[in-house]
Each structure stands twice: as structure tokens, then as C-alpha cells.
């Protein structure tokens, strides 16, 4: 069965034919199944934002194919309505707020869906609740009076209210406090429970590893890894490229392994890491007691 997102041999070049030509995507092949969570990781300028803008029809494939929810994204007539299926929350979405009240801002998407006003109201309050802004008075405040983080929540609520089949988040955590991060983790968890598809971009492998089972790594426009976190842990040559993006416990374990100690490196939780280190310590002590 084909996945909800199918990308095949996708290339993208910005400013083709000018001195500023950039090959942003090179031969990308990726698929995401219904209900899956995909974490997209990569350094600055690796093409993550370019890739996800293909998913809701903002960029049409120059070469290769993109199919989202069975819709061919290269068809201009169909891709125009792709935003209803694949909701994309941009990097720093708080900059796109323009309505005079939080309520109207969140209602903008549902109203564009031409829903009846009663349904719109229901969806707005549901979305505001999901992002932790339930207090009645907030809905009627002008967004300018809110802080940056609160505005981010409003912007995310604006997309949740559209209730898209696929939710795509571009760096949602950047600049949020821990409560904000938890809010986003909650949203993701709820979507996973409801078997809904989510794609999240992040600069932090650690962040992705704590949430997901499926990860894709982009680097300079190439897909360098695509698969389960477990398999990624068995690929130290890939991980070694991003030493500072690893969770701290992995950094420690790798350091031990580097120094020549016999330690398991394909672990995926801080608990496992602790157990491994204790085991190592015991072995060392035994060596000291009975030197061979």
C-alpha cells in the first residue's frame, strides 16, 4: 500500500540559470505511511524547508514526483488545494499573524475552507485548547499584545484548526520555553494516538530521537539517512557527522567506545546508557581485584 507521502527522484534548483543557482534538493526518495511520525533533521541550508514546501503545493516538482494523500503535486490544478490535506506551519509562524484578534487569526484557515461559522467556532476553541490558550479572554485579545512564544502558539493553533490529514512543522521548537516544547510534544503525541501523520523538522537529533521512530537526515540537499532510529544508531559513520547534535548519553557512550572500552553503542535511552556504564564499571572493578 502506498504511503500518504511518496517522494521519488525529486530534484530542486533555485534561481536556475543565474549566477545564484543553488541545488537545494538532489535525488530525494522518501515515503511516509499513514499515522507515522517523521523527524527531518539536517544542518542549516540543507534543504529541509524546500523539501516540505513540495508537500503542500507551494513548490511544484521540477524533476521527479511528489504524491501527497494520493494527489499528484505536480498538477497545478490539484496542488492548489493541497493545503487542505497537508498543513504546513512555517519556521517562525508568529510573523504571519495579521488579524485583529486571536480568534479571527485562528479562524482564518477554517473560514477559507468555507465552513459554517458554528463549526469554525468549535474548531477555533478546540485548537486554542490544544496549544494551551483556553482562557476565554485570550481569544479576543489583539495578537500584538502577546509575547513571541504565545504568538507562536496562536499561529500553530491556526493550522490545527484546519484539521489537515498531515501536519508539517518547520522547526516548531526554536525559541520556545520548556512549557512550549511540551505543548508541541503533546500535540504530536495526540496525533500519534489518533493515527494521524506528522512531519517535524528539527535542528536537534536529540529532540527527534525522544519522539520518533522514523528519521530522515538531509545534508547539502542529499538524503544521507532514512529509516528507524534503531538503524541510525548502528551507523556511527553517519552519526559522527553531527557529534554535537547527539543526546548527551550517546556522546558519553561514544566517547567510551572511542577510548577502546567494550561498550554497546546502539542504545536509545538514558536508562540503557546508565546500565551499560554500570556494567562497564563492574567489569573494570573485577579486573582490578583479580589482575590476570
Amino acid at each position: 500500500m502506498p504511503g500518504v507521502i511518496e517522494i521519488d527522484h525529486l530534484f530542486h534548483t533555485y534561481a536556475k540559470g543565474s549566477p545564484y543557482e543553488v541545488e537545494a534538493l538532489k535525488d530525494i526518495a522518501l515515503s511516509v505511511d499513514q499515522g507515522e511520525f517523521l523527524g527531518l533533521f539536517g544542518p542549516n541550508g540543507s534543504g529541509k524547508s524546500t523539501l516540505i514546501q513540495h508537500l503542500n503545493g507551494l513548490i511544484r516538482p521540477q524533476k521527479g514526483s511528489v504524491t501527497v494523500c494520493g494527489i499528484d503535486a505536480s498538477n497545478p490544478k490539484l496542488s492548489r488545494d493541497l493545503w487542505k490535506n497537508a498543513g504546513l506551519v512555517f519556521q517562525y509562524p508568529e510573523h504571519q499573524i495579521f488579524q485583529i484578534s486571536v480568534y479571527d487569526e485562528v479562524a482564518y484557515g477554517p473560514r477559507n475552507l468555507k465552513l459554517p461559522e458554528a463549526t469554525v467556532k468549535e474548531r477555533v476553541y478546540e485548537a486554542l485548547q490544544q496549544v494551551g490558550l483556553i482562557q476565554e479572554n485570550i481569544a479576543h485579545l489583539p495578537p500584538v499584545t502577546l509575547s513571541g512564544g504565545m504568538r507562536r502558539r496562536v499561529a500553530i493553533a491556526g493550522m490545527l484548526a484546519i484539521q489537515p490529514e498531515i501536519l508539517i512543522l518547520d522547526e516548531p521548537m526554536a525559541g520556545l520555553d520548556s512549557a512550549g516544547r511540551n505543548m508541541i510534544l503533546d500535540i504530536i503525541k495526540k496525533r500519534q494516538e489518533k493515527h494521524e501523520t506528522t512531519v517535524m523538522i528539527s535542528h536537534s537529533l536529540k529532540e527527534i530521537m525522544t519522539i520518533t521512530d522514523k528519521i530522515a537526515i538531509l545534508d547539502s540537499g542529499c538524503l544521507v539517512f532514512n529509516g528507524k532510529v534503531k538503524d541510525l544508531l548502528n551507523k556511527p559513520e553517519v552519526l559522527a557527522q553531527y557529534p554535537f547534535d547527539l543526546p548527551e548519553y550517546l556522546q558519553i557512550v561514544y566517547e567510551f567506545a572511542d577510548k577502546g572500552f567494550d561498550i554497546k553503542t546502539n542504545i536509545s535511552s538514558i536508562r540503557e546508557a546508565g546500565e551499560e556504564i554500570i556494567k562497564l564499571q563492574k567489569e573494570l572493578e573485577q579486573l582490578r581485584i583479580s589482575p590476570a
Binding site: 493545503w83 506551519v89 510573523h95 484557515g109 477559507n112 475552507l113 493550522m159
Partner: peptide, 16 residues
């Protein structure tokens, strides 16, 4: 550049 980004963001919410 900003105008393009905001325009795309609004398109994602169904601006015509």
C-alpha cells in the same frame, strides 16, 4: 524575501 515567505505561509492557510 519576507513578503514571499509570508505569502507562502498565507497560501498554506488557503489565501487565494
Amino acid at each position: 524575501e519576507e513578503a514571499t515567505i509570508i505569502k507562502n505561509a498565507q497560501k498554506s492557510r488557503g489565501s487565494e
